[in-house]
Design a protein around this nucleic acid. Structure first.
Length: 193
DNA sequence: AGAGGGCTATCCT
DNA sequence: AGGATAGCCCTCT
């Protein structure tokens, strides 16, 4: 299986209504994981432990978790990408970064491209691919599907080239909801331009 | 090497 | 508007 990060991380959760969010921070102070909301705190913590079995709950980072919640609910938050552990420091080899949340330079390039999509706008898997100079549309979709920082790296803003909403790790309902919160109109599972 | 993905284009019904 | 199919290319077995 995938090698899990063995280093202990700190996790903070935040509750908004029925939804619980969680953010994991490494000892270096960088965010290594953000969860999509779950209905219980146990579930978000289970999500965290899936990739980071060794974690400790603290409230040191609830502000971050709240920021994620705000973004989920359609607030335009500003967020410094440097706070995310994207693995730039281990430039050496992809294989040496297997303990990091982003495991390949391809995934890194994809996520960087996704991070540029402005609030309230969408782009397509195809356009992301093209700006990366590849026609591996599916590979792009797969990489986006592994986004360790959902909502903050706005993978929900990537849709199919025919206007259909496309898939989402947290389910299409959730994708629809986040997009709707950002003011994007959707009718019959299609983006209204 | 092989299978399988958050896809796309094209050709059907 | 949907289904089947072939093509694409990165990742994990």
């Amino acid at each position: 299986m995938v090698k899990k990060r063995e280093d202990p991380i700190e996790v903070s959760t935040y509750q908004s209504g029925m939804l619980h969010f969680a953010v994991g921070v490494s000892d270096s102070g960088k965010i290594v994981r953000i969860t999509l909301p779950c209905e219980t705190e146990e579930e978000v913590l289970a999500e965290i432990s899936r990739e980071h079995p060794d974690f400790e709950v603290t409230d040191d980072h609830v502000d971050l978790a709240k920021t994620v919640s705000d973004a989920y609910h359609g607030k335009k938050v500003k967020f410094n990408l440097n706070a995310l552990e994207l693995g730039f420091s281990s430039e050496v080899e992809d294989s040496t970064s297997e303990c990091l949340p982003v495991t390949s330079s391809f995934e890194r390039r994809v996520l960087l491209e996704v991070s540029k999509i402005p609030f309230g706008e969408v782009t397509t898997y195809k356009k992301i691919s093209e700006s990366l100079g590849t026609r591996g549309y599916r590979a792009v979709g797969t990489a986006i599907g592994k986004n360790p920082f959902p909502i903050i790296i706005p993978c929900h803003r990537v849709v199919k080239s025919d206007g259909h909403i496309g898939n989402y790790r947290g389910g299409v309902r959730m994708k629809r909801e986040i997009l709707k919160n950002e003011g994007i109109e959707i009718r019959d599972d299609r983006i209204i331009i």
